[in-house]
């Protein structure tokens, strides 16, 4: 891995080069509500710098909340079908946290390993992830419990760690290299050093090894009911989660002209598993929440070898009932 250095004061200049490259640049922006969201920006002045975590993850860059799978048009001699993959722009995500970067690893594995998803593949191929290490954290952060750190490089193309007046730049992939090559003069060569003291301190909430083992028998835990009783069954956790990938496929338009869309869906919604006959295999919120949590900590491990929770803490911050995923997991694996 190549290590570079850039002066903190030069970051805006680097950023402007990214904008000038003509690619779509997505970066955290502070909204009036005080929450920070990824948005397309045009200059560094729009970019939020003082935040712990964005409200939503950057997954929408590769897995949009609504994605047109294809459009169709009835003609006299049949139906024209046109997919939208060619319209996908080159995109740079700036300022995602290391945990989010690692979430892309999971998503890539999930979408591309088996039955590869061409939409995801096209978007991912055109996306560069520039992550920034966490100097701050809050009580909801628990990346250190799922095998990550506030300075993890997994999944990102570039990781920036501010060290005083300097920014320590880890060039992780070719895409990352290409990004700094846009303004090569701003970067100097640097040597590898420890980021430790510049990173936020995050206590581990549990031992992942133990949890992975214990969750195998957690399905029947009586605690699921207690832990899920407070769950309202909204989709806030799933939609803000960087690794939740459930979706719905819906047609819009008329039978003559319209689009087939895939839209985010959430396994916590009451009707998510409901059959057309009215039969619902997952009748209550306990079953639905259990599915979500077991998926993160057991099923994705069994299917793909990856714990699909990155400890970003969004679901905890966003939950209307303030349910806490790591407390829930601890409780059902006791």
């Amino acid at each position: 891995m190549e290590i570079k250095n850039i002066k903190l004061s030069q970051l805006p200049a680097f950023f402007d080069q990214l904008i000038k490259s003509g690619k779509v640049v997505i970066a955290p922006v502070m909204k009036k509500s005080g929450k920070v969201f990824f948005e397309r920006v045009q200059s560094y002045s729009q970019v939020a710098t003082d935040y712990i975590q964005t409200g939503f993850s950057a997954k929408s860059v590769v897995f949009p909340k609504v994605e047109v799978l294809f459009s169709f048009n009835k003609t006299d001699d049949g139906i024209d079908i046109k997919d939208s993959i060619t319209d996908i722009p080159e995109t740079i995500v700036w300022g995602l946290r290391p945990c989010d970067g690692s979430a892309f690893n999971y998503m890539t594995e999930f979408f591309l390993k088996e039955n590869p998803d061409v939409y995801y593949a096209a978007r991912k191929a055109k996306t560069t992830l520039i992550a920034i290490s966490c100097a701050k954290a809050d009580d909801a952060c628990f990346c250190t419990s799922v095998g990550l750190t506030p300075g993890s490089t997994e999944g990102s193309d570039l990781l920036l760690t501010t060290m005083g007046e300097d920014v320590y730049v880890e060039v992780i992939t070719e895409k990352g290299k290409a990004a700094i090559d846009l303004s090569a003069s701003l970067f100097s060569v640097n040597e590898e050093r420890s980021k430790e003291k510049y990173l936020a301190k995050i206590d581990t909430k549990f031992s992942l090894t133990e949890i992975k083992e214990r969750i195998k028998t957690a399905y029947d835990s009586a605690e699921w009911k207690n832990e899920s009783m407070g769950c309202f069954g909204c989709g806030a956790c799933a939609f803000s989660c960087p690794t939740c990938t459930c979706f719905d496929i819906q047609d819009e338009g008329t039978q003559n002209k319209g689009q087939r869309l895939r839209c985010w869906d959430a396994c916590g919604f009451g009707q998510f598993t409901k059959h057309a006959s009215g039969h619902n295999p997952k009748t209550n919120q306990t079953q639905r929440r259990r599915q979500r949590l077991m998926h993160k900590f057991q099923y994705s491990v069994e299917n793909l070898g990856i714990v699909s929770c990155v400890g970003c803490g969004r679901c905890i911050r966003v939950c209307p009932a303030h349910l806490n995923i790591f407390e829930n997991i601890l409780s059902v694996t006791q």
């Binding site: 999930f110 979408f111 088996e114 039955n115 998803d117 399905y219 990938t245 459930c246 979706f247 719905d248 496929i249 895939r262 869906d265 396994c267 998510f272 598993t273 409901k274 059959h275 057309a276 295999p281 599915q291 077991m294 998926h295 057991q298 099923y299 069994e302 299917n303």
Partner: peptide, 24 residues
């Protein structure tokens, strides 16, 4: 089994029974 399905290729998540995707 005929769980609710949307994608058919083990992605959308509707048909899951535990770790199993009924569709794939």
């Amino acid at each position: 089994l005929e769980n609710r399905m949307k994608c058919g290729v083990g992605k959308c998540g509707h048909c899951t029974v535990g770790k199993t995707y009924v569709c794939k």
